[in-house]
């Protein structure tokens, strides 16, 4: 049985009056993909920044590979790879030149460095663009190179902070497959995202973070159990319909545990969809609002978030 590669205890970070992270504790098992799932501003990046010794925690402690992040930051940094949320690359350099530089920053050199660059470029699918300047790359290619930098020294633990933000579906597919490959090679990954689907696809365990607090943590099965046997009812409306009045009506329908509205959608957490549906249809008919389509979903991370916070994950 593999041990914990990371243990975080009650990490806190304040920016003046703002408590960005309010005491987060979790641990990551060697070889697993651990996902921190949370909306914008939840404190994901702040948490990662503390773990990779970039930000000093206001309080709390963490150990990576048995080394304290506060007392032995250099030992910690040798073990970790970081893929920051915002691209951190030199646009005026080629892909290879970037990798040479970052490899050297990890203390690599000589033939080992050269070989590793070939390997890593292959891994992220940029071998044919090795000698192109980064400013000629598409957004997706830059994201992949950003990941390649974090892989250079074969870290034991890789931090990936929203690595798929703002790219096309195909590049995202690429990256998700890449992360799965990394796991099969035995790498441990801390993956943050605000896409429920990504956490669902990749993560062995998920920590749901909101307003600086870890509000749930466990395997996907464990988390969905929190919602019980609840189902999610997703109602889509036409663009010109107002859903504001409906929401309050739906909340009063018996059997509805939680309700939230996003653009032209109302999401209901319900005990049994078939019980609730007729009442919901009546309520919207009475309000003169036409429902365009209805989805019924088995419990998922989205419904967990909704159940726990009363809000949809995507805001």
């Amino acid at each position: 049985m593999a041990g914990n590669i990371l243990i975080a205890k009650d990490l806190k970070k304040s920016y003046g009056d703002l408590e960005a992270v309010k005491g987060v504790s979790f641990s990551i098992l060697e070889g697993e993909i651990f996902s921190l799932l949370g909306p914008n501003g939840a404190g994901k990046t702040t948490t990662i920044s503390m773990l990779c010794c970039l930000l000093e925690p206001t309080a709390g402690e963490a150990e990576i590979g048995g080394h304290s992040i506060a007392k032995e930051p250099m030992d910690v940094k040798r073990l970790i790879g970081v893929v920051p949320q915002d691209l951190a690359l030199y646009e005026a350099l080629t892909a290879s030149q970037n990798l040479v530089f970052w490899g050297q920053m990890y203390g690599m050199g000589g033939q080992a460095l050269k070989n590793r660059i070939v390997e890593v470029l292959e891994q992220v699918g940029l071998s044919d663009r090795a000698n192109s300047r980064v400013d000629t790359f598409s957004g997706g290619m830059k994201r992949r190179l950003n990941i390649a930098v974090g892989l250079m020294h074969k870290p034991s633990l890789l931090f990936m902070d929203e690595p798929t933000v703002g790219i096309d579906p195909q590049s995202r597919r690429n990256i998700l497959d890449m992360v799965k490959d990394l796991r099969s090679q035995g790498m441990t990954v801390l993956y943050t995202t605000h896409y429920m689907e990504e956490a669902e696809e990749l993560a062995d365990r998920v920590g749901i973070i909101d307003h600086g607090q870890l509000i749930a943590l466990g395997t996907q099965k464990e988390l969905t159990h929190l919602v019980g046997e609840m189902e999610t009812l997703r109602l889509h409306f036409n663009e010109d319909e107002s859903t504001a009045d409906l929401l309050s009506k739906f909340e009063k329908v018996p059997g509805v545990k939680a309700a939230s509205a996003t653009d032209h959608q109302i999401i209901l957490t319900v005990a049994d969809a078939s019980d609730v549906l007729p009442e919901v249809m009546n309520a919207s008919a009475a309000a003169g609002v036409r429902i365009r389509s209805i989805d019924i979903q088995e419990p998922n991370l989205e419904s967990v978030f909704l159940h726990l916070t009363g809000r949809a994950l995507r805001n």
Binding site: I80, P84, L87, A88, W102, M105, Y106
Partner: peptide, 13 residues
């Protein structure tokens, strides 16, 4: 650009 911060996540003082 974040490259300075990235350098500081590597074992560089």
């Amino acid at each position: 650009m974040g490259t300075l911060q990235r350098m500081l996540t590597t074992p560089t003082r």
